[in-house]
Simulated scan of single mutants.
Amino acid sequence: MDYRTLGNSGASVSELTLGTMTFGAEADETTSHQMLDAFVAAGGTLVDTADVYSAGVSEEIIGRWLASHPTEAAQVVLATKGRFPMGEGPNDVGLSRRHLATALDASLSRLGVEHVDLYQMHAWDAFTPIDETLRFLDDAITAGKIGYYGFSNYLGWQLTKAVARAQALGYAPPVTLQPQYNLLVRDIEHEIVPASLDAGIGLLPWSPLAGGWLSGKYRRDEAPTGATRLGEDPKRGMEAWEARNGDERTWSAIEAVASVADAHGASSSQVALAWLLRQPAVTSVILGARTVAQLDDNLGASDLAKQLSDDELARLDASSSPRVDDYPYGTAGVAQRDRKLTGGR
């Protein structure tokens, strides 16, 4: 396992992250602890959770593992999130100082720790002034409750505004952003990736296998069955499945992934993950396994990422390039004018 700095911080983290949304839901506590054991044994350090994952159960499962593995726990870089409701009250949601103070303390209690390395705002809050949120996070760093902070599911302008306000106010800067990013969801390359590169923000992509599509489990025009998330729960996201099934770009990407996988004797999942590891601004890719076997397979992406050739990366890129037909991204005339003004650069 290779290691990278956590965005613009000095902390080092593994290039693969153990995501724990399945803990307490699709994975029971025994399986969850086995995945933590396997991840750490493979050199993994970054463990990501959130207060709303299984209504706090995910954090509790991690907390019990940390307490029973003090040596391994010392190497874990622990990340959690707050923003969404954990209660019925009017202040039990959002990014206000009122809610975040309660949410962070509750997360620390469930995790059984006094400090988390990375505290992330789970989504933008249009009702709370960004200065209030940033002041709370800066205070939480000063109080020793968090080491760094980041965001999740922010748009490009939201990320840039937060970075600029933190700088203007003299607060600690954000270090990471968690976006959905995979070979089938690449629109963040228009705005969010450039904004992250500009600010030195490290990306922690979630859903790197596009809900299982890039694992090679699904077949064109065949409704999912069997041991897949959609197969076990057909009502879950079938409308989205039908839209993706009808998109030729989906099958172009899946076929390209399978071709590269065959050439390396690897799984499709490993190829999709390895592609992400080679993308600009990516710090660590979040693995969302349900079983130890799935996790073990996904961990193989670390070595494969070093083996992918430039030609293979180009084939994967071409199979799934984000659409740029519409304004403002498809403004070929503007691009031509820019090249003339800059001497062809």
Rank of each mutant, 00 (worst) to 15 (best):
278 R>G: 06
187 D>I: 05
3 Y>E: 11
269 S>N: 01
295 L>G: 01
188 I>R: 00
115 H>F: 14
334 V>Y: 12
85 P>F: 04
55 A>Y: 14
206 W>P: 00
312 E>H: 06
149 Y>P: 01
243 A>E: 15
333 G>K: 12
41 A>T: 13
54 S>A: 15
55 A>H: 15
31 T>V: 14
192 I>E: 08
216 G>I: 06
168 A>Q: 14
48 D>T: 03
20 T>L: 07
52 V>G: 08
172 A>H: 12
121 M>S: 04
238 M>L: 14
65 W>T: 02
130 I>T: 07
178 Q>T: 10
141 I>C: 08
42 A>I: 06
79 A>W: 07
213 W>G: 06
126 A>S: 15
85 P>H: 03
155 L>N: 12
120 Q>A: 08
288 G>D: 06
109 S>K: 15
317 D>I: 01
312 E>Y: 07
252 S>E: 11
287 L>M: 10
221 D>I: 02
157 W>P: 10
18 L>G: 04
97 R>E: 02
314 A>D: 14
71 T>K: 15
81 K>R: 07
162 A>K: 00
72 E>M: 13
49 T>A: 10
213 W>Y: 13
199 A>F: 00
12 S>R: 15
127 F>W: 11
68 S>A: 15
29 E>Q: 14
132 E>F: 02
119 Y>M: 03
285 V>S: 04
7 G>H: 06
104 L>P: 02
252 S>V: 05
39 F>I: 04
247 D>E: 10
257 V>A: 08
144 G>R: 11
318 A>S: 14
51 D>Y: 03
200 G>L: 10
165 R>W: 04
80 T>W: 00
247 D>Y: 04
173 P>D: 10
310 D>S: 13
328 P>W: 08
195 A>M: 02
152 S>Y: 02
308 L>Y: 00
249 R>C: 09
182 N>G: 02
21 M>A: 12
98 R>L: 00
197 L>Y: 11
327 Y>L: 15
327 Y>H: 15
143 A>T: 12
21 M>P: 06
109 S>G: 14
345 R>W: 11
59 E>I: 08
208 P>D: 06
8 N>Q: 14
24 G>A: 11
